[in-house]
């Protein structure tokens, strides 16, 4: 079954590549220079990986971006989930934090870039801050909702069994909220990539966003495409890893089995 799904996926990708050949080369529907041909793309890929582009080779750009994503995502999750859980469980904490959160939440993460650069310069710290902010919000919201939506009888069952507070939190509330928490994590990861690329476009010396930026200044469409597809592959990879973790953690749930 999984094999079959993978086959269909590969087939679809092959179809898109064929279409790309067809449109750019065989029929010339897309004029030369407007969109790179597969050959140009391949040359650009070879160039960046073998000789380097925008200061580094492709894998160095990719690893740099990936590292930033992982760090920022983990920081965001490690701060967002506890805050969301706290707001979901404690009415007083919710009353205190939620208004502030509601006010900050609609600010697009990219709007923090100027401030981040002003505070932390053009280095990685500023990017971590901006990504942290983007990934933090969905983690908080979903952990919060996860706790608020826990079936009341679940808590009552725990109470009637004389569950002490720490076990109530660790063995009942957190696992009960876990499916929602994972929904938040997926959104957080997506937001992390969006923000990273934007942040690197604005100010960076290495990274896939920086590749895109330089390629645009050089008017080099094939290299832009290389940068874009690199982001796509990296994004897919991180989502895949998160999915593996989710399947393990939520093995008990009906969704987890699917």
């Amino acid at each position: 079954m999984r094999n079959r799904k993978a086959m269909v996926g590969l087939g679809a990708i092959a179809g898109v590549v064929l279409l790309w050949f067809a449109l750019t080369r065989w029929f010339g529907i897309i004029p030369i220079g407007r969109f790179p041909t597969p050959g140009e793309f391949w040359d650009a890929l070879k160039q960046i990986e073998l000789r380097g582009f925008a200061g580094s080779r492709l894998h160095a750009h990719a690893l740099h971006s990936l590292r930033l994503i992982v760090i920022s995502f983990l920081v965001a999750v490690a701060t967002g989930i506890p805050l969301g859980l706290l707001m979901g469980w404690n009415r007083r904490a919710e009353a205190l934090i939620n208004p502030v959160f509601m006010l900050i939440r609609p600010i697009p993460p990219l709007a923090w870039i100027p401030l981040a650069i002003l505070w932390l310069g053009l280095g990685d710290a500023a990017k971590v801050m901006v990504i942290w902010f983007a990934a933090f919000v969905p983690s908080v919201i979903n952990a919060h909702a996860g706790v608020r939506n826990i079936d009341r009888s679940m808590i009552e069952a725990a109470r009637m069994m004389g569950t002490p507070p720490h076990r109530l939190v660790m063995e009942v509330i957190v696992p009960a909220a876990m499916p929602m928490i994972f929904t938040g994590l997926r959104l957080s990861l997506q937001a992390s990539w969006t923000t990273l690329v934007a942040a690197e476009l604005v100010g960076a010396l290495v990274g896939v966003g920086f590749v895109l930026n330089v390629a645009q200044q050089d008017i080099f469409p094939a290299m832009i495409l290389v940068g874009m597809l690199t982001v796509g592959v990296l994004g897919w990879f991180t989502t895949y890893v998160l999915g593996l973790v989710e399947r393990r953690v939520l093995a008990w749930s009906v969704q987890g089995r699917a």
Partner: peptide, 15 residues
């Protein structure tokens, strides 16, 4: 826990 409850909707911990 001196008064155990059996709920209509079971209320087991699914995890």
């Amino acid at each position: 826990s001196d008064r155990a409850v059996v709920f209509q909707q079971f209320a087991l911990f699914p995890w």
